[in-house]
Nucleic acid binder design. Sequence first.
DNA 1: TCTTGACTTAAACTCAACTTCAACCCGTAG
DNA 2: CTACGGGTTGAAGTTGAGTTTAAGTCAAGA
Lengths: 126, 126
Amino acid sequence: MTIGEVAKRSGLRASAIRYYERVGLLPKPARSGGQRRYDSRILARLAVLERAKNCGFTLDEVRQLFNDQGRPSERWDRVARKKIVELDALMEQIRGMRERIERRCSCADFDECGRRILASEQCGAT
Amino acid sequence: MTIGEVAKRSGLRASAIRYYERVGLLPKPARSGGQRRYDSRILARLAVLERAKNCGFTLDEVRQLFNDQGRPSERWDRVARKKIVELDALMEQIRGMRERIERRCSCADFDECGRRILASEQCGAT
DNA sequence: TCTTGACTTAAACTCAACTTCAACCCGTAG
DNA sequence: CTACGGGTTGAAGTTGAGTTTAAGTCAAGA
C-alpha cells in the first residue's frame, strides 16, 4: 500500500502518518522508487494508536506504550493508572466549573461582582 | 498602583496583565512617566476575569462578557448557556475515555489488539 | 555620578499535534 | 512529449494563553 491508500483506509491524513513516523510512533516502512510502501500490519498499528488517543493518551504516552520495556500489558497498566488519576481530576475540575457557572448572583454589573468576590462574599458573577 | 503592585495583589504576573490589556480585556490605564498607574478597580476587574476563567471561559468569551451589548446578566447567560453544553460534552468524552481505559483485553501484544479492533471485536488494548 | 530595581516595547518563544507550503521527483495515460 | 496525479522533503504555520528576551527608560538612593 502507498501512504495514500493507508490514509484512506485508516481515515487519517497522509501528513499525520508521516508525522507519526517522524516522531517515532511508527517504524520506517520499506520504499519503492522513494515512496513508502506499507503492508497491512500498519493498519493494526494505527488502530491501536487511535484507540489509545481515544483513551486520552498523549502521543508521548503512546510512545511509552509502544516502545518502553516490559510486557505490553504492564506498559498499558502503568500508563493507564496515571491517566485515570488525571481524568478524575479533570472531571472534578469540570464539575466545579459547571457549579460556578450556575451559581448566579444579583449584581448590577461586573464591577460589583468583582468587589464582592474580593470581599469573599457569595457571588456568581452578575 | 504600579503594575508590579497589581501583580502582587492579584497573584498574576505583570506580563499577563499587560497581555490582557493588549488583547482588549482591560482598559488602558493612566500613565505617569510612561508607567501604568492603576486604581483599585483593576483588582475587581481581575477578580471577575479569574472567576470567569475558573468557569472555563476562554479569553475570547470573557471579552464578550466584558464588551458586548446588553445587560451584564444577559451577556453572562448567553455565554454561560453555550459553555454548559460544551462542559457536558467534555464530561461525556472523559467518561468514555475512562471506560475505554478500564475495559481490558487479553491480547499478547498491541498487534493482536490492533487486528481485533479492526475486526470490531471486543478489545481494550492489551 | 553611578547603580539599582522596576518599568517600557516589540518580537520571538513555548506547548501539542498536526497541517500547509514550496519545490521537487516519478510513473503512467494520452 | 507532456500533463497529471500521486509521492517526497524541510520549513513554516496553526491554536490559546501567556512568557521570555533584548534593548531601552525612569526615579530614587548612595
